[in-house]
Amino acid sequence: MTTTCVWLQEEWLSASLIAELCPAGATLIYIFDETWLAQRRYSLKRIQFIYEALLDLPEAVEIYRGEPSEILHARRQNKTEQRYLTFKPRDPELRQRVLDIAHAHDVEHMTPPPWIPVQSQSFKRFFKFYNVVKRHALDEASRDKS
């Protein structure tokens, strides 16, 4: 059986999403990324909020503080996990950083399905966007209700 390690990201701390997308029995890890924290200057409020969300997930999470590259490298050396997965962040700056690290350490990334799929169009002002997606949003919600 393939053993898997999932590197969780701060924007996807949903128990249901993890249950849906991660292989059963995977080890979950979270890294408080020092470079990222220093860049965004997260206050203790934000760090504690994320920490509490992690502690409350139904599956235990191994929590680290450090540089993700070093931690992933060390795990690769010492552990028997064969497959590494992560979630693609929504924040473009975090996404760039995570995808660069993932690429360097052979970590596959998962993209949770978007609510509003509008990749092919470009909107500059909200109401143009709203007029196009409104029906989808309300219809989809209605479908889910029934």
Binding site: E11, W12, L13, S14, A15, L17, P112, W115, A141, D144
Partner: peptide, 12 residues
């Protein structure tokens, strides 16, 4: 923000 709840779910 932390992905614990989806906006789609709130709409529903």
């Amino acid at each position: 923000r932390q992905g614990m709840i989806e906006r789609r779910h709130l709409a529903n």
